[in-house]
Design a protein around this nucleic acid. Structure first.
Length: 120
DNA sequence: ACTGTGACACTGG
DNA sequence: ACCAGTGCCACAG
């Protein structure tokens, strides 16, 4: 039943992909967060969550601390995990146990970027 | 070309 | 709620 939509003619080169992903990440404002999967979707590449992580690893000047795993969980390890949490809390992001309170802090990307089929 | 790896997501136990 | 298994996709060797 669930058909996938690949209709969004995504640039298939790795460069365009990374560029779009970085652009999406930059949209996340301080105090807000998103997830690897959500960023990938908004950038036009549903299912490419891992590439978002790759983009963050190499990209400079990106608010990397604002990208989390599904459910608001930090996916980094060791010192970096603490660094991320520290940075987020410094921005006012609240945690509930080991995860961010997504209900309160998840950033809603501008629908315009996706398939805006709303209104009527 | 093939295999292993990873800042992932989802489902099931 | 946590952990394991599986699917996923691009990249490095």
């Amino acid at each position: 039943l669930v058909r996938k939509r690949v209709s969004s003619s995504p640039p298939l080169t790795a460069d365009s992909m990374l560029a779009r992903i970085r652009a999406a990440i930059k949209q996340i404002p301080p105090g807000k967060v998103s997830t690897y999967g959500a960023v990938a979707r908004v950038a036009g590449y549903p299912g490419h969550a891992r590439q978002v992580a790759r983009a963050l690893h190499g990209g400079i000047g990106l608010p990397w601390q604002r990208v989390l795993g599904a459910g608001g969980q930090i996916k980094l390890r060791g010192e970096y995990a603490m660094e991320q949490r520290f940075r987020l809390e410094a921005e006012g992001v609240r945690f509930r146990g080991k995860r961010v309170d997504m209900q309160a802090h998840e950033f809603k990307f501008n629908p315009r970027s996706k398939s805006r089929k709303k209104s009527h």
